[in-house]
Amino acid sequence: MEDKKPLLKVKNLKQYFRTSSKYTVKAVDDVSFDIYPGETYGLVGESGSGKSTIGRSVIRLYTPTAGSLTFDGRDITDKLSKDDMNYVRTNMQMIFQDPMASLNPRKKVGEIIAEGLVIHGICATKAERTKMVERILDKVGLAPEHIDRYPHQFSGGQRQRVGIARALIMNPKLIIADECISALDVSIQAQVVNLMKDIQKETGTAYLFIAHDLSMVKYISSRIGVLHQGHLVETGTTEEIFSRAIHPYTQSLLSAIPRPNPILEKLRVAKTYDYATSGIDYDKGSKHLVEGTHYVLGTDKEMEQWMANNP
């Protein structure tokens, strides 16, 4: 992975929101990670940790407060030129968390999916555009006759497939999946995730997969970043995170995963982590390399203690 060039490079990203003259919310504070072509980077953390804010900053729905964003060799941090804006809008797409809220209820599915093609003038004729929409509907498991239906005529899983189709039709290099399975039934979640994996094998699309469900993140992701209170506290390969989690917050998340074996489930002890009483200060910590691509946020003293407890 080291010899490859990152598709997306996020460096020291800060996203602050000023709520009053005296108070500023630090939603994302000094976050750095890379996403390589064709891989899935999972971003996990509790509600309010800044996951969705990172996704929206990366796709430039928000202007970053500080830091830098590099996409496919282009600096997209500051105000974008028309050429850069078009490049980002065609090569980076987002699947939103709520499939109903993200689809225009007044438009038919065919119009919703083809909107990007119309805006960027990708198809020369309406017939060509319709053919592309039908092809992408088939790819996500929907029938051609669905093209003339409205969003309310679909189930939750089908609406999410429409959202995936809308993102895929632009043939993007990166898709940001913002908790795209959290509102779905478990059986539908598996279908959607398997669909995303199949599409990734076929097209080579990279994913920034934002989710709560660690088991699902483990299944789909090649690398994982753990976010807490706007800070990336630990990052590494899926195997590194699940077999040797070092940060106490990551350990608490992993300990909360239910086990399908009732005997092991009875013995499972969920660890608790309270940042206020932990004695850890994220603002004073720095990123330490544990091994390979496994990084942990902490001070030198904290790292010594963690390494002593995790030989």
Rank of each mutant, 00 (worst) to 15 (best):
residue 138 D to K: 14
residue 51 K to Y: 12
residue 195 L to Q: 04
residue 75 D to L: 14
residue 206 A to C: 09
residue 256 A to H: 01
residue 186 V to L: 13
residue 48 G to A: 13
residue 138 D to L: 12
residue 306 W to F: 15
residue 259 R to E: 12
residue 147 I to R: 09
residue 153 Q to R: 08
residue 74 R to Q: 14
residue 299 T to V: 03
residue 286 S to P: 00
residue 72 D to C: 03
residue 79 K to H: 11
residue 132 M to H: 01
residue 281 D to V: 13
residue 114 A to K: 04
residue 277 T to W: 08
residue 276 A to G: 03
residue 276 A to W: 08
residue 148 D to P: 00
residue 91 N to T: 05
residue 127 A to M: 04
residue 277 T to C: 09
residue 41 Y to C: 08
residue 84 D to T: 12
residue 187 S to Q: 09
residue 251 Q to F: 04
residue 304 E to H: 06
residue 64 P to M: 11
residue 47 S to D: 10
residue 154 F to G: 04
residue 33 F to K: 08
residue 296 V to C: 07
residue 311 P to M: 02
residue 217 V to T: 05
residue 21 S to F: 11
residue 239 E to Q: 15
residue 178 D to H: 12
residue 131 K to T: 07
residue 2 E to F: 07
residue 22 K to Y: 06
residue 60 R to F: 07
residue 75 D to S: 12
residue 280 I to R: 13
residue 269 V to R: 12
residue 19 T to L: 14
residue 297 L to S: 05
residue 186 V to M: 12
residue 1 M to I: 11
residue 29 D to R: 06
residue 169 I to M: 11
residue 240 E to M: 04
residue 287 K to N: 11
residue 156 G to L: 02
residue 174 L to G: 03
residue 161 R to T: 02
residue 229 Q to G: 00
residue 110 G to Y: 03
residue 222 S to L: 02
residue 82 K to N: 08
residue 245 A to V: 01
residue 206 A to P: 07
residue 300 D to G: 03
residue 166 R to M: 10
residue 246 I to A: 03
residue 65 T to S: 15
residue 38 G to P: 05
residue 254 L to H: 01
residue 14 K to V: 09
residue 118 V to C: 04
